[in-house]
C-alpha cells in the first residue's frame, strides 16, 4: 500500500439535489420535450397563417371546463413544490401530502379533460383543426399520465423512507418534470383557448 497521508478536498459523495448529474439530465429532457411542443405549436401556427382565421371553428372554445381545469393543474404544481419543501426539511408527512395532493389533482385534471374532449363538436379526423386539437392536447395528456406515474413511484419511495433531507434528488427531479408539464399546458391552453378570442370575432 502506498503512502496514504495526502488527502484531497472534502467532497460530497453521490447525487445531491441540483448538484447531481440527474438534475442536468432532466433539464436536457425538458429542453428536448419543450422543442417537441414548440414544433407542434409551430405546425398549428403554420396552418393558421396559411389558411387564415377562418380555418378556426366558428364558435370560440368554451372555457367552462378548461378554465377551472387549468387552475387545478396549477394547484398541483404548488402541491409538489410544497411537498418538496417537506423533503428538504425531513418532514415526510408533508412530502407525502404534497405528492399525494399533486397526484390527486393530476388525476382530476385528466378526468375533466376527458369530459372536455367529449364535449367537442369536432373529432380527430373531422377537420385539420380537430387533428391538431386532439393531437396536441393528447400529447399533453400523455405527459400528464407519465408525470402522475412518476409522482406515484416517488410517493411510494417516500413512504418507504428512501429519502433524507440531504438525499432526495428523485423528488427534486420529478417535480421539475411536473412543473414543466404544467407550463406546457399554459402554452397549449393559451394557443387553443385564449388566442382565438384575440384574433377574430366569433
Amino acid at each position: 500500500m502506498a503512502d496514504a497521508a495526502t488527502l484531497g478536498p472534502e467532497l460530497p459523495v453521490g447525487a445531491r439535489g441540483r448538484n447531481s448529474v440527474g438534475w442536468l439530465g432532466m433539464l436536457c429532457l425538458i429542453g428536448t420535450e419543450a422543442s417537441l411542443f414548440a414544433y407542434l405549436l409551430f405546425s398549428y401556427a403554420y396552418f393558421l397563417v396559411r389558411f387564415g382565421p377562418a380555418w378556426l371553428p366558428t364558435r370560440h372554445p368554451s372555457l367552462l371546463l378548461a378554465g377551472p381545469n387549468t387552475l387545478i393543474l396549477l394547484a398541483s404544481s404548488v402541491a409538489v413544490w410544497w411537498g418538496e419543501g417537506g423533503a428538504r426539511q425531513g418532514r415526510r408527512g408533508r412530502l407525502l401530502a404534497g405528492l399525494g395532493g399533486a397526484i390527486a389533482l393530476g388525476l382530476l385534471f385528466l378526468t375533466v379533460q376527458i369530459f372536455e374532449w367529449k364535449a367537442k363538436a369536432f373529432t380527430l379526423t373531422s377537420s385539420a383543426y380537430g387533428s391538431f386539437y386532439f393531437t396536441i392536447t393528447g400529447f399533453h395528456m400523455a405527459h400528464v399520465v407519465v408525470g402522475v406515474t412518476i409522482l406515484a413511484v416517488v410517493f411510494a419511495w417516500s413512504a418507504a423512507g428512501d429519502f433524507t433531507p440531504r438525499r432526495h434528488e428523485p423528488v427534486v427531479i420529478s417535480s421539475a418534470y411536473w412543473h414543466f408539464v404544467d407550463v406546457v399546458w399554459l402554452v397549449v391552453f393559451t394557443a387553443f383557448y385564449i388566442a382565438p378570442y384575440l384574433t377574430a370575432a366569433p
Binding site: S35, L36, S43, L124, T125, S127, G130, T135
Partner: peptide, 25 residues
C-alpha cells in the same frame, strides 16, 4: 440533436397518424 430531433420525430408521427388514423396534417 436535442433541439432538432423532435422535429423529425414529430413529422413522422403526424405522417403515421395521417396514414393510419385519417388525420389531416
Amino acid at each position: 440533436n436535442l433541439l432538432a430531433v423532435p422535429s423529425v420525430s414529430l413529422a413522422f408521427f403526424l405522417l403515421w397518424m395521417d396514414r393510419q388514423f385519417g388525420t389531416h396534417f
